[in-house]
Structures are given as C-alpha cells and as structure tokens.
Nucleic acid binder design. Structure first.
Lengths: 347, 347
DNA sequence: CTGAAAGCGCTTACAG
DNA sequence: CTGAAAGCGCTTACAG
C-alpha cells in the first residue's frame, strides 16, 4: 500500500468534465447559489454529482472561505454529566448550521489547555468555547485571541481579566440560596454545607448563596456545620462522617453532586436514613441524581441550555455580529427527588 | 464588523519576507526537515516565526498532504461511561501523533450516523472509528468506504457484512461466564440474569456466557430466572421487582451496569439487603459502580484499553500499513466491589 | 446564465 | 543548502 490516503475522491473537476460545464458552474450548483444557472444544467449537474458520489472537500473549501465549519469545545473532563449535557446541547445546536464541534478535554492540565487553544486557533476552527475550570494561566492568551477578533465564548470561567470576552455562566449564588430556601420551607433550621475546592470560584459563590439564604431566613451561621471536600467523592465521605459525629443537623447541602453522593453514602454507613434523619440536596446536574437510591433532590444547572446559549453567542461572533450582552447568567432549577422531607418539629 | 474571520493570521509568506528567504525554506524549517538548510538560517527563521506568533494553517497543509490530522469517532451517546473511557483513551493515544478526534454522537439515529459517515469521509478526517451500536443500515456504506481504502475501524459492532473491516470488541461471552464463575465460587447456585435488548448482539453474547457458565458448573438453567430490561434503568427496576416476587435466588447478574443499579434499587425497595440477601454483579464499565452504595462488583470492559487498541489499528491504516489481525478481542476484568458475598449454606 | 483566472496557505519534486 | 513553480480542491470577483 502506498503511504497516505489515495487521491481517489471525486472532485468538482470530475463533475465538470462529466457534465461538460466549467468547475465554476458546478461549484455554484453545489452551493445552491440560485438564479445563477439554468434549471436544466442544474438538474444535470446534480444527477451526475449524485451518481459519482461527490462529496465536497471540506479542506479546500475552508481554505478559500476561511471557514472550516469546525469549532473547538474545551472542557475539563467528559466524565462529568454537566459537560456531557453541555456538549450534547452544542452538538445539536450547531448541527443545523453544519458546524461540528471538536471536543478537547484539558484534564485540568493548563499546558494541555494552552496547546489546544494555540493549535486550534489558526485555520482549524472558526471559534472556540472554553468551558474549563479556573486557572488564570491561559487567560492572557484567550484575551489576546478574542481581541484579535477570533470568536471565543467562555463558559463558567471566571477572572476579571476576561471581562472583554463573552461569558456564559450559571447563577451559582442563586443555587446556594435556592437550596436553603427549599430546606427552610421544609422546616429545616440546622443545615450543613460541603464546599468544593477553595480556588473554585463557582464553589465559593454557591457557598455565598448558602450564607445569603441563612441570613434571609434569620438562621444562625455556624462554621462547624461547614466542611470542604474538593468536589471529590472520597473526601466527601470522610468529611461527612466527621460532621455527623461532631454536630447535629437535619439537612445537608453539597456544592456538587459527586460530593452529595459521597455524603449520602456516609450517612447510610452510619445507619441514618435519607431523608428520615438527614435531608440532602446537591448543587449541580448529574445523572447520579436520578439513579441513586433514594433519588436525590438537587438544584441543577441546565447544561444543555447553557450549551445552546454559548453556541448562539459563538455563532453570532463567527458571523461577525456583535453580542447584545457580554455576560449571560443562567438560572438553576430545583429538581425534586426523594432526598428531602419535612423536618420533624422541634429540630 | 466584516463577515467571516479576518485574514489576519501570519503566514509562511510573512515569515519568508521577514527573514529574506523563500517560502520553501520556511516550510522546510517549520516541518523539521533537517539537513536541508544551514543552522544559522534555521535559527533565524525559528526566531522570527516565534516572534511573529506563527501557527501553521492546518487547512492549507491538509489540502496538499491529504492529511487533516483529524479522525472521526462515532459513538451512540457520550453519557455512557464506557464511551467516555473509549474517547479518553483515543484522545490520549492520538495526542502523541497530533491527531485530533472529532466526537460524533449518533444518538442511535441511523440517519444521523449516515450523515456523519458521509460528511466526514471526504477530506475532513483521515480515518474513522465507528463504535455505534448495531443497526446494519449503514454497514454497506461503511464497507464501501473501507474497501475504497478509507481507514475505518469498527468497535463493538457486529454483522458479518463487516467481516472485511477491522473490528475491536470485548469478549462478551467471557464476561457472562466470569460472572457466573465468581458467583459460583462464592457458593451461589440460583443465579438470575437480566438481559439487554433482544437485538443487541453484545447482550445476547453475555447471555450465552451466562448459560455457558451455568453448564460448566452443572447448574440448572431456569428460564424463570431470566428477564429483560432493554439496557434501561426504569425497566430494570420493574423487571427485578417481578423476579423477586416470582422466584427465589441468591444472586443476580445484569447485562449492563445501568440495569444493575436499577435492580439494586428494586432489591433495596423490597427491604432486602445487598449482598446479604442478594449478591449482585454487573457486566459493563461505569462510574456508578464506584459511587453506588454498596460499591458494585462488576465484570468490566476496559474502555480506555479498547480505545487505544482501536486507535493503534486506525493509525496503522492511516499510515498505509496492513493489520496483523482483522479482529481484536479484548478480555474483560473482574472489579471487586461490595455487592457479592458468600452464599449462606443451604441456598 | 456561464467560463477563465486568481488565489486561499501550504508542500514538494525539480533544478541549481 | 536554497528558490521558482506547480498544484492540492475549492470559491469568487470579473468579464462576457
């Protein structure tokens, strides 16, 4: 076998030869540039193209139009439900425009992220959605590209140096607050909270929402009811066990669902009932919620919706239009499961 | 703003101008074609390229080399852990060759799959990994491309019409058998089985393995201990409830993990203990396993490994080399959790 | 309604 | 060691 792919694909030139017209005419027909050619020529060309199995060469087209029909989507890790939803939303939204996302997972590695940003930005993709977690290392590079006119939308990424870049994010404060509201309505007064990593902006915003919620309802803020587990499952198991031994509480909020599941396992392991002894609520959007026993109640961020929002923004930028807002804040929603019940009076 | 991306990127021509050499020389240096230019010229060119922020235009390069450095990866749905692992394995494997996967989810829609296969195959990607579930609709198209010399590797896809196409798959029979072996060793004699969809080849192979395992150990095969749940969570809950009411058994195998979780929820809902009353084992590879309470024991297919295997095959095909085998069967592995325990004597 | 021609940014024989 | 030139497959003014 020879090296590389053989050049056996049928080209516009082949069609032109076979139909006895110029390549320009074939090109026009294939691009549906109407009113520029007689109906009979058009039909003939289409038939021949169909018969010969012509498929336009994307590379060649891209080179002249300066549009590849590709966009890069940078996320930390596809194992998270939220990013799966995000990607699904994007893939679907872009499909109508024949735009294809290229999924790039950074695995929280900043060098890897930098490589992706750099290698994608010249010719390969028409735009980029950056939904990776914090780490200001590459903000400068991102901003430089954006200011150069390269379409970039960041998603759930924080840092004031990115102020000039379009950003889509969830309302994290609201999420924390909603969780407290819901638990308060159910009669809970002593509510624990498990934070994510200290350097995760969205975690600290969720925590702020928790505090805001407590204040709103006149509940005492007790630091002993707060712990951290770095968004990790195992750490959450341990942290929750400690919390349970140390303090009394009737409800618990976890800043993400993975920690929520960890917390539930710890509660179960200590022979306490969910929601009988402890009501539990997660902040996030994961598949675990629906499959866990009991089904978990959560304040969930709509990944698909956020993906579509980011997609729309990027599409406008790619089309050279300006954005109405530079920041889009998406509200979370309560997903009622089975892990919260009314607190017993007196608690 | 003007329409489209502005042509502001620095090109090989700019570098050539700035360094006073021809574009051919710049090209050679940028491609590390050594021994073809003086060291001093090389250093100068590199410095200037670096300073001007030159990044090669992938489209232009692809057009002449007939290599895009892109491969398509078709999967049913990124929400499944197995496909996440597969994709992660592929992305990582290809990274060393600067090959980028484009993730295409077919969502079990055959028309969508066809569109992807067609639109990717002309110039855009150098090869394709097709890991979508059965549905022979597009087999003809796949085979046509493969025979045309287009690099294609199918993964866990069945159909004798694809015999001429490289295939990577898990040893599904072995998985079913291993599950029975493990339960038998733990003293279980009455073992239930939950099948996937009737038309899913891998499910029926797993089922065959189950029967083979029973025979091997001289256990009776009882059709009443077998039910089906189409690989679905909800259906598995219902099916398991029925099974529990109808028959006595001390262990249960589910043909995939999602059904396994459904079965566990049903068992718990009927106030039975896992593994005290029923030992449970899943066949698959999912994140649920490790996060569920109790941690689930499973016979797991190594998604990352299978991805890398498929990647290696595809790489060889892209490089115009032939494959040593046209079929690669990957063995599953036992992942010990907490959902199996020794059966009580007499059961 | 149609064609000849330039050009997108690059690689690669070929010649020197 | 280096350059001029052809060409990858396509789009798109320009002219007719």
């Amino acid at each position: 076998m020879e090296k590389g792919r053989q050049r056996g694909n049928v080209t516009i030139k082949d069609i032109a030869c076979a139909s006895g017209v110029s390549i320009a005419t074939v090109s026009r027909v294939m691009n549906n540039i109407s009113g520029r050619c007689s109906a009979e020529t058009e039909v003939k060309i289409r038939q021949i193209a169909e018969k010969m199995g012509y498929v336009p060469n994307v590379m060649a087209r891209s080179l002249v139009t300066q549009r590849s029909g590709l966009v890069a989507v940078l996320i930390p890790d596809i194992h998270y439900y939220y990013y799966q939803e995000l990607y699904a939303g994007l893939e679907d939204y872009f499909k109508q425009y024949d735009i294809r996302p290229i999924l790039c997972t950074t695995l929280q590695n900043m060098e890897r992220e930098r490589q992706y940003i750099q290698s994608m930005s010249n010719g390969l993709v028409d735009g980029m959605i950056i939904a990776t977690l914090n780490g200001p290392e590459n903000n400068e590079e991102i901003l430089k590209l954006a200011e150069k006119g390269f379409p970039i939308v960041t998603l759930e990424r924080y840092g004031s140096d990115l102020d000039n870049c379009c950003n889509v994010r969830g309302d994290n404060v609201m999420a924390g607050e909603m969780a407290v509201d819901y638990l308060y309505e159910n009669g809970h007064r002593r509510i624990a909270f498990i934070c994510g990593p200290d350097d995760a902006k969205n975690s600290s915003l969720r925590y702020n929402g928790y505090i805001k919620g407590l204040e709103k309802h006149g509940l005492d803020f007790d630091t002993e009811l707060v712990t951290g587990a770095d968004y990790q499952f195992e750490k959450s198991v341990t942290a929750t066990e400690k919390l349970l031994r140390k303090k009394e509480f009737t409800a618990l909020i976890a800043a993400n669902d993975l920690m929520c599941v960890g917390a539930c396992n710890a509660i179960k392991a200590m022979k306490k009932l969910i929601p009988g002894d402890v009501s539990v609520i997660g902040l996030d959007n994961t598949a675990y919620m629906e499959v866990y026993h009991p089904i978990l109640t959560s304040i969930s961020f709509p990944g698909i919706k956020m993906g579509i929002r980011a997609g729309k923004c990027l599409k406008r930028l790619i089309d050279g239009k300006s954005l109405k807002q530079s920041e889009y804040i998406i509200a979370p929603a309560l997903k009622t499961g089975e892990s919260v019940q009314a607190a017993i009076k007196g608690n």
